[in-house]
Design a protein around this nucleic acid. Sequence first.
DNA 1: ATCATTGTATTAGGTGCTTAATACAATGAT
DNA 2: ATCATTGTATTAAGCACCTAATACAATGAT
Lengths: 125, 125
Amino acid sequence: MHWDIKTDRPIYTQLIEQIQLKICSGVYPPGSRLPSVRDLAREASVNPNTMQRALAELEEAGLLYTHRTSGRFVTEDTDMIKHVKNSLAEKHVQEFLKKMIELGFDSSEIMSIISEMMKREGDET
Amino acid sequence: MHWDIKTDRPIYTQLIEQIQLKICSGVYPPGSRLPSVRDLAREASVNPNTMQRALAELEEAGLLYTHRTSGRFVTEDTDMIKHVKNSLAEKHVQEFLKKMIELGFDSSEIMSIISEMMKREGDET
DNA sequence: ATCATTGTATTAGGTGCTTAATACAATGAT
DNA sequence: ATCATTGTATTAAGCACCTAATACAATGAT
């Protein structure tokens, strides 16, 4: 699995986001067991304490649960996962629109820029 | 002027982004004089050192220049400003599309979500 | 000439994040 | 019963960022 950690924000927040993403996109399916804290930390090249912190917050949010000594598991509440996925999508759209409007682009300009850049994205195959 | 500083990222990077935005959107027009470091720091409720750091980086990037004791000014190079504006827009679109695709949305879904949320944005007048 | 204002530099201290090195209790496998 | 593995907790150190408190040289206004 790929972990993309940058230096411009706290690592533990990036871990939260990326684990959340793996859950929402099905890389970690509902009910499945996650690798151990130590293994995940090794994968992501971070300290186990940092990974533990991210996992603890995801557990508090309800996306994960723990069986004390057998490991951590993804929630089986698929409705919750869908809800998180939609919330993230909405957040991304809102933040994106805010930035573009602040820059001075109007709705039609935004739409055309996006569709233009989508074409270019599709080229890479 | 509004300054929106959060705690999840270094303050000086947020200052850079927001000053850059004010330049690109015309709040600080080409050739105009900026408030003094101390005044800007007071406006944004940050330490003068932190504001100074942000301004120094924008100066290194060429968006600002300094007359040693009379103040800082926005570049008169309007082409450069346009270029920065377009680069920012491209970056925002790419980051946005990346996030949405990672979440599992395809092109047509993305377009419809955006146009749907644009309607709702337009309501607030 | 004097003085307030400009950008700039320096020092010290505090805070949050990260890492490293341990340690411990609980459990599943042998 | 023993042992490796699980999550969890603790302590110490280092680092980047931020603030506070100064200080100084250069310039424009008076």
